[in-house]
Amino acid sequence: MTRKQKRLSVIVAGLAFLAAATGLTFYALGQKASYFYMPGDLATATVQPGQRIRLGGLVEKGTIVRGQGATVAFSVTDKQKSVKVTYTGILPDLFREEQGVITEGSFGADGIFVADSVLAKHDERYMPKEVADGLKAKGVWQESKSQ
């Protein structure tokens, strides 16, 4: 090979590498990104059982039930619809009734959302952004009522 050919083959190999990486990235985005829903959105969106999503909203008042061991059941609501959620593990410190929460997991066959992670806000002053935006969009929550 001449020097020029060598150089060309290096460039082609580099481009092929980049193309592969790009392809992988977009494949992964399609497969592995989880969408965020509020309970009210689930009526219109089709979410298969087993599909990973994030479900956000407020912890509905009076629905927190502590079951066997560390399993907890509660409902997440956006004041329009509410969804039953079960979670096994330690709830975040700021998990409370009527507070914003994001759960991640998937629906079981029985329509109950099985969460494997529950996020509450990091600080008492703030609500998770997605939840705040969602509630605002539904006109349920106003900035001034955050406390």
């Binding site: 497969q31 592995k32 990104a33 989880s34 969408y35 969602g134």
Partner: peptide, 18 residues
Amino acid sequence: GGKISVGAPFFDLTFGPL
């Protein structure tokens, strides 16, 4: 306006093989 979250599964699949 769609909200998604990209977490560990995505990075495991892309960052890992690299």
